[in-house]
Design a protein around this nucleic acid. Structure first.
Length: 605
DNA sequence: TAGAATATGAAGTAGAGT
DNA sequence: ACTCTACTTCATATTCTA
């Protein structure tokens, strides 16, 4: 089923055959903030003072570099003259700013940016946000599109410093100045970034309300459940606030496919073999992004919007192995002629753990384990279960005891290891289920607790390998990989097991223990390529990327799953969504991916 | 002090029924 | 439209212990 995902408003319509060109409307521009939203830095260097010491070069070269990105030569020369050529990011941000300020008055429909806004978006205030590369077109077009329907003569008060920060942040997310200022004006100065982005999304939706959507009668197993995203007519802000709750329920959210097989899995007959990827998203470089499927509402809409409006592929690993793992993947890989890793892993609990069969009661009908997480059940809890069962004698326990036990079994992924004896899985059993070699995370000074943590945060290798398998024919001589948030190397293990030579792997991983695990695996598997370690994603700026790409010849694949801490349902404390402390590092994934795309594009032209 | 052990719900989805 | 039940979830904070 050919699908055109070029619908660019915030409400994603996977089934629309709307053939509007990718005009960058609503797309967060390629300029993403390097500093994590909410101002935290995670201990990494960030912001204005970051050492973006560019390698010395002549002005000519640098001017050519930016001209190649589409900026007027005269303007580039002027900016470099003003700022020097030391800090490429600063130069780029300045050029972008000029693009915004100079282009806006030329928009059709006589839309004017309020003077105050223009004034407050002075160069100085835009500077502090370090940015990836961007096409200035994004700003221009998004401004144009937004203003097309909303009130053009909105009065905007002079922003307060707090407003400035929000304005700055929103523009760094890719929204136009006008969109951002209107949102702040309408929703109030105290509105959070989340509320403001919601407002902008709603306005974009409203703007698109005249677009008709063809609801396709898909088969039961199709991804049709992602569709049927209606459009709300009413674009009044107050009305929107009243209706927000209802709209979120039935309008704009990406829905999970059922069964959760993405574009297809080896074990199910139904599959999709064709999809349409937006032009701006097409590889190379190929990219592969992963996170939890059951994230808070709206998160996947945002992630998808940033990642060039590519439709997420939601897959439950229970179709690949003996444990469930519901994850969303956004990638621009072909989906035809995928193949699974062999040998196929155990498919049921009994196949994975034959020894448990002897003790498994008939009333425990589980065939698959639930998601492997970062923490395990306590001994006291399994002891309570044992006592409860022993009180029931040799017969099957009464229904309420069965339910009590089964609920805990499902919650903590317990398996039967003796008469009335349940136990959580061992770390090496985690490794097997997830497709890693046994003892992959063992030794090297890592604690048992940390093994669970690292494994619980990892890819399911068979699942990921199935998606990556199409790369094998494309890169017979080997592949250069930029691996962000590598963890214990799920992607690398998958590529290796697929028989794809790893020419270069640049891994970015904050945990030293995880980097050690990767390094150890690299050596044990006699890799002939080069492994480069980087600790902090925020150290990976445009200069660093350009340097690495000079050295190794560009990246073929940018792979990674950004932190799920603030998205995962298990988190009782800080499930704050995509703006959360750790999960906001998604924006760094986007920033880095976009920089790689930009650098590649500038070099190929 | 590091590691281990333990306790700590809510949010979201889906389906059935009223 | 609404309520109710059933089910799942890449985690965190605190306390204990060697």
């Amino acid at each position: 089923m050919a699908e055109n995902n070029s619908s660019l408003d915030c409400s994603i319509d996977w089934d629309s055959d709307d053939d509007r060109e990718i005009d960058n409307y609503g797309l967060p521009s390629t300029s993403a903030s390097a500093t994590a939203p909410c101002g935290h830095s995670n201990g990494g260097s960030s912001g204005l003072g970051e050492g973006t010491s560019s390698s010395p070069g002549s002005n000519c070269e640098i001017i050519r570099h930016f001209v190649g990105m589409g900026f007027p030569e005269k303007q580039v020369a002027r900016v470099i003259d003003e700022l020097g050529d030391e800090n490429h990011n600063l130069v780029l941000e300045t050029l972008l700013t000029y693009s915004v300020l100079e282009d806006t008055p030329q928009q059709p429909n006589d839309i004017q940016v309020p003077e105050e806004v223009q004034h407050d978006l002075s160069l100085q205030e835009l500077r502090p946000v370090e940015s990836g590369h961007s096409s200035s077109d994004y700003y221009v077009n998004s401004f144009d599109e937004f203003s097309d329907t909303d009130s053009p003569s909105m009065e905007v008060e002079t922003p307060s410093p707090d407003e400035d920060e929000k304005l700055l942040f929103l523009t760094s997310m890719g929204y136009s100045v006008f969109e951002a200022s209107i949102a702040i004006e309408r929703c109030g100065r105290d509105a959070t970034i989340a509320v403001l982005t919601d407002f902008i999304c709603a306005a974009q939706m409203a703007r698109a309300s005249d677009v008709h959507f063809i609801e396709q009668d898909k088969k039961k197993h199709s991804l049709g459940s992602l569709s049927k995203l209606k459009r709300r007519k009413n674009q009044d802000c107050d009305a929107w606030k009243r209706k927000k709750h209802r709209c979120e329920e039935d309008d704009e959210l990406i829905r999970l496919p059922k069964p959760m097989i993405g574009f297809g899995v080896p074990t199910e007959s139904y599959e999709i073999v064709h999809r349409t990827i937006p032009e701006v998203a097409k590889g190379p470089p190929y990219f592969y992004y992963e996170n939890v499927a059951l994230a808070p509402k709206g998160v996947w809409n945002t992630i998808s919007r940033f990642l060039y409006d590519v439709e997420p592929e939601f897959v439950d690993s229970k179709f690949f192995c003996a444990c469930a793992r519901k994850r969303g993947y956004i990638h621009n890989l072909p989906i035809k002629n995928r193949f699974p890793l062999v040998p196929l892993p155990p498919f049921t609990i009994h196949e994975a753990f034959p020894l448990t069969k002897k003790w498994w009661p008939s009333w425990d009908t589980r065939t698959k384990l639930n998601c492997l997480q970062t923490a395990i059940g306590s001994a006291k809890m399994t002891e309570r279960i044992r006592k409860a069962l022993e009180e029931c004698g040799d017969n099957d326990p009464p229904m309420h005891v069965q339910k009590y036990v089964l609920d805990l079994c499902r919650k903590w992924n317990l398996v039967w290891v003796g008469k009335n004896k349940l136990a959580p899985l061992e770390p090496d059993e985690f490794e097997t289920l997830l497709g890693f070699p046994k003892n992959h995370t063992r030794g090297g000074g890592i604690s048992r607790t940390d093994r669970y943590k690292s494994l619980g945060n990892s890819f399911q290798v068979d699942t990921v390998a199935y998606h990556l398998s199409v790369l094998k024919d494309m890169y017979p001589e080997g592949i250069n990989v930029l691996s962000l948030f590598s963890g214990i190397g799920g992607a690398e293990v998958a590529l290796h097991r697929l028989g794809i030579p790893l020419k270069t792997v640049v891994e970015v991983e904050i945990s030293e223990a995880n980097r050690n695990i990767m390094r150890s695996w690299w050596e044990q598997t006699n890799q002939r390529g080069t492994l480069v370690d980087i600790a902090d994603v925020q150290q990976v700026d445009t200069d660093k990327l350009a340097q690495l790409m000079d050295l190794y010849g560009g990246f073929d694949l940018v792979v990674g799953g950004s932190p799920c801490n603030n998205l995962a349902g298990s988190n009782r404390v800080s499930r704050d969504g995509l703006e959360g402390k750790e999960s906001s590092l998604f924006y760094d994934y986007f920033r880095i991916l976009d920089s790689v795309k930009t650098i590649l594009a500038s070099r190929s032209s």
